[in-house]
Simulated scan of single mutants.
Amino acid sequence: MALELRPNCECCDKDLPPASLEAVICSFECTYCSDCAEGTLEGKCPNCGGELVRRPVRPAGKLVNNPPSTVRILKAEGCSSRTSA
Rank of each mutant, 00 (worst) to 15 (best):
A2L: 13
A2M: 10
L3N: 04
L3K: 05
E4I: 02
L5H: 09
L5M: 12
R6D: 06
R6C: 06
R6L: 14
P7W: 11
P7E: 07
N8W: 10
N8T: 10
N8L: 07
C9E: 11
C9S: 11
E10D: 05
E10K: 08
C11K: 04
C11G: 14
C12R: 09
C12A: 10
K14H: 11
K14G: 01
D15I: 05
D15H: 13
L16W: 03
L16K: 03
L16S: 02
P17T: 05
P17Y: 01
P17A: 04
P18G: 00
P18D: 02
A19T: 01
S20N: 08
S20K: 03
L21P: 07
L21R: 15
E22T: 05
A23H: 05
I25P: 07
S27W: 04
S27V: 04
S27A: 07
S27I: 04
E29C: 04
E29S: 09
T31Q: 09
T31R: 06
T31P: 09
S34A: 08
S34K: 12
D35G: 04
D35C: 04
C36N: 14
C36W: 11
C36V: 10
A37S: 15
E38I: 05
G39K: 14
G39A: 11
L41E: 15
E42S: 13
E42K: 15
E42N: 15
E42F: 08
G43I: 02
G43H: 08
K44C: 06
C45I: 03
C45H: 05
P46S: 08
N47E: 12
C48Q: 00
C48W: 00
C48V: 00
G49I: 04
G50E: 10
E51L: 05
E51Y: 02
V53R: 11
V53N: 06
V53Y: 06
R54F: 00
R55W: 04
R55P: 03
R55L: 01
R55T: 01
P56T: 00
V57T: 12
P59C: 03
P59R: 03
P59V: 02
A60W: 01
G61I: 06
K62N: 05
L63M: 14
L63A: 07
N65R: 15
N65K: 15
N66V: 09
N66Q: 15
N66H: 14
N66P: 00
P67H: 10
P68Y: 05
P68H: 09
S69K: 00
S69E: 07
V71N: 06
V71A: 09
R72D: 04
R72S: 10
L74E: 03
L74H: 14
L74Q: 11
L74S: 09
K75R: 14
A76T: 10
E77V: 13
E77M: 08
G78M: 08
G78R: 11
S80V: 01
S80C: 04
S80G: 15
S80Y: 14
S81C: 13
T83D: 09
T83S: 15
S84A: 11
A85E: 04
A85V: 01
